[in-house]
């Protein structure tokens, strides 16, 4: 059977079951049926209750993700090819890798305020690590034969970097970007739940504490949709950029 058909079938089955449970008379107050959520979702879109928060959230997560992953990829690639940078950076990065970066939120808040900047810094910090590690190993696993061959053909060091090392590291770089993207959403909602005056994490908290379960579910659905959509976008970009890889493995 086609996996896509099974996937959609399962989704329909789960939603149907949920609908049945949520429309029974004895269901708890905080369980809403999928149909109700859809109705509230449309209403929240029209009333303008939702979109400003989506915008506020994206304005925090996207700069953080772009900043952190760009620095991570660049430094990771460079550390993968330059020994002195490798010795300086890698021990610190690998040592602090398993440390939960969210614990630095309070101190960053103290230094640069409780506004958007501290959230962006924390998201960038968290996104840095997977990108650095993956770009580092991607650059280090460049086939030597290719480097030797290009040097032999008279390529300069910068050319070897740009034409050999970077392309051969790209598949791992994309793997790192995908992890960072997922992390950026987790960090975004946690920082917004911890303290914010706008954004989806704030909306979820506010809806929860004012017992507006409709708004709570609407924001959760929006979070899920944003996470899913951005992941799909990244996969699309990877298919574009790595078209040669798909062609060679086919």
């Amino acid at each position: 059977m086609n996996p896509r058909v099974i996937g959609w079938g399962l989704l329909a089955a789960v939603l149907g079951l949920w609908q049945l449970v949520a429309t029974r008379p004895e269901h708890p107050e905080f369980v809403l049926s999928p149909v109700e959520i859809a109705v509230h979702f449309a209403a929240a879109l029209r009333s303008g209750e939702l979109l400003p928060h989506v915008g506020a959230s994206l304005l925090r997560s996207l700069p953080g993700f772009v900043l952190g992953s760009a620095i991570g990829v660049i430094l990771g690639l460079l550390a993968g090819v330059a020994r002195s940078l490798d010795q300086m950076l890698s021990p610190v990065v690998f040592l602090t890798y398993p440390v939960p970066k969210i614990v630095f939120l309070p101190i960053v808040m103290l230094w640069i305020g409780i506004g958007d900047a501290s959230k962006i810094v924390i998201i960038a910090l968290a996104c840095f690590y997977p990108c650095f590690v993956n770009a580092y190993y991607g650059a280090r696993s460049t086939p030597r034969i290719m480097v030797w061959a290009s040097l032999n053909m008279g390529a300069r060091r910068s050319q070897v970097f740009g034409k050999i090392v970077v392309p051969s590291a790209l598949p791992l770089v994309f793997a790192g970007l995908r992890v960072s993207l997922a992390l950026s959403f987790i960090l975004l909602f946690s920082t917004e739940m911890i303290n914010a005056r706008s954004g989806l994490g704030f909306l979820i908290r506010q809806a929860e504490s004012s017992l507006r379960f409709d708004l709570m579910y609407v924001s959760i659905v929006t979070v899920a949709a944003l996470g899913y959509a951005s992941d799909q976008l990244l996969l699309l970009a990877r298919r574009r950029v790595l078209a040669w890889q798909a062609a060679t493995t086919r």
Binding site: M1, P3, R4, I6, G7, L10, L11, P28, F30, L181, A182, F185, I186, F189, S190, M193, L200, G201, I204, R205, A207, E208, M216, S219, I220, V223, A224, G227, Y228, S230, D231, Q232
Partner: peptide
Amino acid sequence: AAFLSPIFSGTYPIPKIALFPIFIY
């Protein structure tokens, strides 16, 4: 695999932390 892998690959990129308020209830 036919039944479980669509569930996991479909819900993989969704930030589970958003479900925390529901879990609290």
